[in-house]
Simulated assay, not measured.
Amino acid sequence: MQVIHDEKDLRFYIEFEEGEAELTYTYPEEGVLDLDHTFVPEPQRGKGVADKLVKASMEFVKSKGYKFIPSCPAVDTYVKRHPEYKELEQEI
């Protein structure tokens, strides 16, 4: 299961026969990703797919020295379970 980062379309995704799982984002300001929506096809749910997408996004944010906004509930939940990424969250 490979996560692909499409910087042009502002998303991380994984391809499956049933379609794509994706985590989309926007840049509300320079150096800040608003991680706003996660979708996983029904047959792939409950298999850790969303976690793989979120982890890939966290590693991208970290590697660039960026911050993120966890607008998507899946992202917020992941960060609560993985507090090592909490320091990357944009202060409001």
Rank of each mutant, 00 (worst) to 15 (best):
L10K: 06
E91D: 14
T77L: 09
E42F: 14
Y66N: 02
A74N: 08
K47I: 10
E87T: 12
T38D: 04
H37L: 02
Q2F: 12
L35G: 00
D51N: 14
S63K: 14
S71G: 03
E91T: 13
I69D: 00
K62E: 13
Y78P: 06
K64P: 00
V40F: 07
Q90A: 03
V61E: 08
K52P: 10
E59W: 05
E30Y: 12
H5M: 11
E7F: 15
Q2R: 10
F39K: 04
S71A: 06
H5E: 10
D9V: 13
T38K: 03
P73K: 01
E84I: 07
E89H: 01
E20T: 13
H82I: 03
E84C: 04
Y27H: 09
S63Y: 09
Y85Q: 07
K64V: 00
G46T: 07
V49P: 02
I92S: 07
R45K: 13
E91K: 15
T38W: 01
A21F: 01
L33Y: 02
D76L: 06
Q90R: 13
E17A: 15
H5W: 10
E30W: 14
F68L: 06
L33C: 10
D51G: 15
L88S: 10
G31I: 07
P41Q: 09
Y85N: 02
E59G: 08
T24P: 07
A50D: 15
Y13W: 01
G31T: 00
Y25E: 10
E89V: 02
G46M: 01
Y27N: 13
G65Y: 09
L10G: 04
S71H: 09
G46Y: 03
D34F: 03
T24R: 08
D34Y: 12
K47W: 05
K62V: 11
P73M: 01
K86D: 13
G65F: 03
T24S: 06
G48T: 05
E15A: 15
E87V: 14
T38R: 10
Q44W: 09
P73V: 02
K8M: 11
A56I: 03
P73E: 00
L53D: 01
G46D: 00
K55M: 10
V75L: 06
F39I: 11
Y13A: 02
V79K: 01
P43W: 00
E7L: 15
E29Q: 06
D76S: 03
F12W: 06
Q90E: 08
E22K: 08
I92D: 14
